[in-house]
């Protein structure tokens, strides 16, 4: 099990190195290698998660270690799905960095399989956490793209307008993807909470921050598709949205207490 975890992390780090070499040397071979390594990391992680699921007898999404592994996995999934449609070498480097860092950070937490507390013993666990993290994965990639856009859009940049347009399109698409799954995650969480505690909404910090994040991205989508907001403004909203995601996922676990305090 630990070997698979380490192999997955190593694959992401190796992908990062290849992607950086590709950016410097401009050789497509390294881009191909980087993407194959991300795919290898994803497959290794999938086997790791599957084995852990089998061994624990429940979805391996119940604590900080497991959720960080899942986060690395969803970032890789969203990136690779995007890669099928479009090739952006620096995005491979950025995604591999994010996945590798998430795995490295996961390794600082207790990895032993722990029994589940009563509130988490529900079939909703896998559905709720998986949908939320697919949303987080989409938002993470959108934030990386937003940063890339801001760099490409700086004064004196010689990036082609078509490239900027492509980045804007990817930004909207990844946010739409993330929004769909975040919404599903919030709603499944509400149904689960009602089944566990008899209340579908209790203004718990995690719930409330999920709602704040949802508001930020809802605002983005409205501004983007109804007011035609593009460019730097849209990119900044995306970055603010992802900061909100990070606080929802990470900050709430460590700084605030509530119904989700077991997540830390």
């Amino acid at each position: 099990m630990n070997l698979l975890f380490n192999l997955g992390m190593a694959a992401y780090f190796a992908a990062l190195v290849c992607a950086v070499v590709c950016l410097i040397s401009k050789r497509k071979l390294f881009d191909l290698l980087a993407n194959l390594l991300i795919l290898a990391g994803l497959l290794t992680q999938t086997v790791y998660l599957g084995l852990r699921w089998q061994q624990a007898g429940r979805a391996p999404f119940s604590n900080m270690f497991e959720s960080l592994v899942l986060f690395a996995w969803t970032v890789a999934v969203v990136y690779l799905v995007l890669r099928i449609r479009i090739r952006i070498p620096w995005l491979a480097a950025a995604s591999a960095t994010l996945s590798a860092l998430a795995m490295a950070h996961a390794s600082t937490f207790e990895s032993a399989i722990q029994p589940l507390m009563p509130a988490l013993q529900s079939n909703w666990l896998s559905f709720h956490v998986m949908t939320c993290f697919l949303g987080y994965g989409g938002f993470a990639i959108s934030a990386l793209v937003a940063v890339g856009f801001l760099v490409a859009d700086r004064k004196g940049s010689n990036v082609l307008p078509e490239t900027r347009e492509t980045l804007e399109t990817i930004l909207s698409q990844t946010i739409s993807f993330g929004f769909l799954f975040l919404t599903l995650g919030i709603l499944t969480g509400a149904v689960w909470a009602n089944s566990a505690w008899g209340t579908y909404w209790s203004w718990d910090p995690k719930e409330t921050w999920s709602l704040i994040t949802w508001f930020v991205y809802a605002a983005f989508l409205h501004c983007r598709f109804m007011r035609g907001w593009r460019g730097r403004r849209a990119a900044w909203i995306s970055i603010i949205g992802f900061l909100s995601v990070l606080f929802t996922y990470y900050g709430v676990n460590f700084l605030l207490t509530g119904l989700h305090s077991y997540a830390s």
């Binding site: 799905v81 347009e165 804007e168 399109t169 909207s172 698409q173």
Partner: peptide, 14 residues
């Protein structure tokens, strides 16, 4: 990933 809204067409404002 679901296909998402095209960038070329905006929703009309209510």
């Amino acid at each position: 990933m679901p296909q998402v809204m095209s960038d070329q067409i905006q929703l009309p404002s209510p």
